[in-house]
Design a binder for these strands. Structure first.
Lengths: 251, 251
DNA sequence: CGGAGCGTTGACGACCTTCAACCTCTGTGG
DNA sequence: CCACAGAGGTTGAAGGTCGTCAACGCTCCG
């Protein structure tokens, strides 16, 4: 296979699609210039490992495009996804030498990376970066806790509906920037295989498949192919997820 | 009942039991003096609500002694504990106006509080506080993700063993400060009711009770009363938890 | 064509929940 | 002083949800 890791991708920070949501969101022009000097891009193909748990982690970075997943694995092979990394999400922990989780490219993936030491130095004298990272970490903590409720207390059907809700909501905030209302059917593609969904939800892939079929038969969603989903009534889906229909706190 | 909230408790930061682990851990003497001016203590009795989810949250603070829990509740009453707050843990989110979770005093509780606005102002010009808060938040995120594996993939027996392991480990790091080895039996009291354990583990209280009985019958633990636990062989307990026996990353 | 990857469906059974009875301990009031 | 209620906990029986094992379909690709 062609190793794409070494590809050089040139991109100005000012035109970066994640400029205003990533760890650099609050940086001023001069700060951005310094970041620009130490950044480099890496590409991964779908399915490729980005980092192995326990390995030395000599870089940190942001997801620019594509999706990556954070997973934990037990000795006997049971695995649980503990995070879904979307564009602008941050990978790596300043101050820690080794990776705590496996990071896998779920789709083709582009990351904007910094070697750890220069980044940590910049963080020390650039409050804007540390502030933004704190904000992002607090958001992730909220998302993780939200997910604990899903894992601990929801039924298989509710779990699927919850996942679909999250993906639909994220897609909505991405696409319709203008406040074109949340009415009408919502359409999106599942970025995950049935197995990845199962790992996310603490289910087996068979149960995921069955519950998706059930939601389809009950008219909550409709499918074209395996991955293309239409949600005719978003409120209905959220009821199935067991959430308040007035929308969660998290975006 | 006697309302203990208004009690004044005087305590010097320098002599504070959580001085070196809490959000103020990195503060210099002068920074500590400023914190001392805006801090105040609050006491809660076991079972008392500290904050209701959705309520306006006009303070933040640290747990000084006792245990509090963070819980989420669904409309139909299902509840999931999403965090266990031990001494030195931080409560509240700078930058957010309302509480995202219920906070309940699980035992009698003392908190060191700051009104939110003055604290946020201090944070803005005291990097030591923001740095420490970032560190603590990253630790909490790790703990939450560890817990996602427990909730999503472990059996009831493994869940109980995991909880016991966490409590035992924490108790060990608290008590034997000198490196007196991790050999020999470990003894501690459960700070949670069976119901609270169930809420933490995503189980019913009956299942918790049955699995504790099973672990006792199998000699993994022994009990005096309902709450006093002896672990004769810590390694055995960790095997039951499904963890690597060589100890997790998290303390 | 054969195989791999992804997905669906069925049969069966284990694990856990649900519902219920009962126990112990503690504090309260007659 | 005892009765009683309530909280916390244990145990049993029955049933449902979801996991396991297996067969099969589809699409893509060498």
């Amino acid at each position: 296979m062609f190793n794409e890791r070494s590809l050089t991708i040139s991109q100005e920070c000012e035109e970066c699609p994640i400029r205003h949501r990533a760890v650099c969101a609050r940086c001023e022009t001069d700060e951005l210039e310094r970041l620009e000097q130490i950044k480099y891009y890496r590409k991964f193909e779908a399915g490729q490992m980005v980092i192995w748990s326990g390995d030395k982690m000599d870089f940190v970075g942001s997801v620019v495009s594509g999706i990556a997943s954070l997973t934990q694995t037990m000795e006997d092979g049971r695995t649980q996804m503990v995070g879904l990394l979307l564009p602008s999400d941050f990978v790596g922990r300043p101050g820690r030498a080794t990776a705590a989780y496996d990071v896998v490219a779920t789709t083709d993936l582009v990351m904007c990376c910094f070697r750890k030491t220069p980044f940590e130095e910049m963080m020390a004298n650039t409050p804007h970066i540390a502030q933004r990272l704190l904000e992002m970490t607090l958001d992730e903590l909220d998302a993780a806790r939200e997910w604990m409720l899903v894992l601990g207390r929801k039924t298989a059907r509710e779990k699927i509906a919850s996942l679909l809700t999250i993906i639909a909501r994220r897609d909505a905030t991405l696409h319709l920037k203008a406040g074109s209302g949340i009415e009408g059917p919502i359409v999106f593609d599942l970025p995950l295989t049935r197995e990845a969904m199962a790992d996310y939800l603490g289910l087996t892939l068979e149960t995921v498949s069955r519950q998706i079929t059930a939601l389809r038969k009950d008219g909550v969603i409709s499918l074209e192919g395996k991955r293309h989903v239409t949600v005719p009534d978003m409120e209905r889906l959220m009821e199935e997820a067991g959430d308040d229909s007035d929308g969660g706190l998290l975006v």
